[in-house]
Design a protein around this nucleic acid. Structure first.
Lengths: 226, 226
DNA sequence: CAAATTTAGTGACTTTTCTCACAATATTAA
DNA sequence: TTAATATTGTGAGAAAAGTCACTAAATTTG
C-alpha cells in the first residue's frame, strides 16, 4: 500500500488496516489551496471532512465590525470540518490557508459510513475533540479572569506548546505571529501586545530576537501564568 | 425492559436496543449528591462517565486567587467526565451539584468497551462534544471582542437558549442565576452585571421582575449582540 | 415575625486598557 | 538600492470597567 492519497501517519487513521486505508484513499480527494484562500466560510453548511496534508491554516471567527478572533492555527495531520459534518448545523468558523496548503477531503456521507464501520476512528476523533474542548476551556478561563499580561502569557504558552522547540532548557518559538494576530488571539490590542512583551523582557522572563521568542525560564513562566 | 437503572431517553443512549440498554444499566450504578457537594475536582484523574438523571450541576474552573469561572450548567440527560475518560489526562474542570442530583455512573473501561461495540454511541458523543465546542468557540469570540454589555448579552442569550420559555413572542428566563454567578459566567464584575442589566431595561430590551428576566424583543436582542 | 444573612443597586474613585498619533524599523517590490 | 509597504514602539489622553463603600431590598432562619 504505497499509493495512498494521504499520509498513512495521520493520527485520525492510525489504527486502520491497509485495506481500509486504501478504501478511504479512494473515497477522498486531494486539493491544493493557495496562500490566503478561504477554504470554508462561516455559516456555510458542512459537506466534508478536511485533513491537512501540508501547509498551515487559520481558524477564525469574524464580528460585524470586521474584527477577527483567531481561534487556532492548524498544521499537517490536523483536521477540521467535523463540526458541521456531525451535527449538520452551519459552520462556526472560517478557515483560511495562510500558506499554500494541500488538503485531503472526504465527503460527509462517506465519512459517516466510516465512523459506523470503524469505531476506532470515532475514538480517535473523540480524543481530538476532547483535546480541543480542553484547550477552549483553558482559553475561556484565561479570557475571563486574567488581565492583559495574563492573556498574552496564555497565548505565548499555547503557541509554545504547539510549535515551540526545546533547546537546552529554553523554549524557543521561531516564527512568532505578527503582533496584530497575537492581539486577535489574546483578545487585546496590538499596542498592548507590544508593551506587554517588552514588559516580559524587562522582567527577564523572555528574550526577543527578531521574530524569535525564547522563554528563558519555561517552568517559572508557566507557573506564574497558569 | 422497565427495570433500567437510568431513563431510557438519555440521548446518548437513544439508539440502542433493549438488550444493550439492560447491559449498560447493569454495568453502571446510581449515586445521589447533595446540594453543594463536589462531584469531581479539577486535576483529579478520570475514571468514569457521569450521566445526570435529575438535579443540576455546575462546571467551573478556579484560579489561584479563588475566583471561579463558570463554564456551563448541566441538566438532566447531560453527561460529563468524558474528557478525562477519553484522553487519560487530568480533568479540566470542577463539577459541583448545585441542587440535590442523582447521577448514573459508568466506569471508564466499561464505557470504552461500549464505544467499540456500539458505534452509534460514539456518534452521539461526537455530536454532543461538537455542540459544546461550538458553544465554547462562541464564548471565546464573545470574551475576545465584546465590551461588558456584549458579554452580558451573550450570557443572557446562552441561558435563554438553554432554559428560556417562549410565551407569545417573549422569551422568559424564570430563575435567573445570581448576579455573582452571571459575573463569573460573563467574565466581568457583579456591579457591572447590575448596571448593564438595568441599562438593557432602560433601552427597552429586557424586563426584570424578581428573578425573572424577559427578553421583550428576542429577535432584535439577538441581532444586536450576536 | 423579627433578626440575621444574602443578594442587589449605586455613587465616587482608581486602575487598566484602548485608541490615536506618529516615529522608528523592517521587509518587500520596483 | 531606493521607494513603497508592512510591522513595531511609545507617549498621551480618553474611555471602559473594576473596586470600594455603603444603602436598600429580599430571603432565610430562629
Amino acid at each position: 500500500m504505497d499509493d495512498l492519497d494521504f499520509p498513512k501517519f495521520v493520527p485520525l487513521f492510525e489504527n486502520l488496516d491497509d485495506e481500509t486505508l486504501q478504501k478511504i484513499s479512494e473515497l477522498g480527494k486531494r486539493k491544493t489551496f493557495g496562500r490566503d484562500s478561504i477554504i470554508l466560510m462561516e455559516h456555510e453548511t458542512g459537506h466534508a471532512l478536511f485533513v491537512i496534508i501540508s501547509g498551515k491554516v487559520k481558524v477564525s471567527r469574524e464580528s460585524d465590525d470586521g474584527r477577527e478572533v483567531i481561534l487556532t492555527y492548524l498544521s499537517p495531520n490536523d483536521f477540521f470540518g467535523e463540526m458541521a459534518l456531525l451535527d449538520g448545523l452551519t459552520r462556526s468558523a472560517t478557515v483560511t490557508a495562510i500558506e499554500e496548503s494541500e488538503l485531503f477531503i472526504i465527503e460527509r456521507a462517506d465519512f459517516l459510513d466510516l465512523l459506523y464501520d470503524r469505531p476506532e476512528v470515532s475514538v480517535s476523533l473523540l480524543q481530538e475533540l476532547t483535546r480541543r474542548l480542553r484547550a477552549a476551556d483553558m482559553k475561556i478561563k484565561s479570557l475571563s479572569l486574567k488581565d492583559a499580561e495574563g492573556k498574552v502569557a496564555t497565548v505565548i504558552l499555547q503557541i509554545a506548546d504547539e510549535v515551540g522547540k526545546i533547546k537546552q532548557g529554553v523554549v524557543e518559538i521561531e516564527k512568532l505571529p505578527y503582533q496584530h494576530d497575537l492581539a486577535n488571539m489574546a483578545g487585546t490590542s496590538r499596542e498592548t501586545i507590544s508593551r506587554t512583551l517588552h514588559g516580559f523582557v524587562k522582567k527577564g522572563l523572555i528574550e526577543l530576537d527578531g521574530n524569535k521568542l525564547r522563554i528563558t525560564n519555561y517552568e517559572e513562566f508557566r507557573k506564574q501564568f497558569s
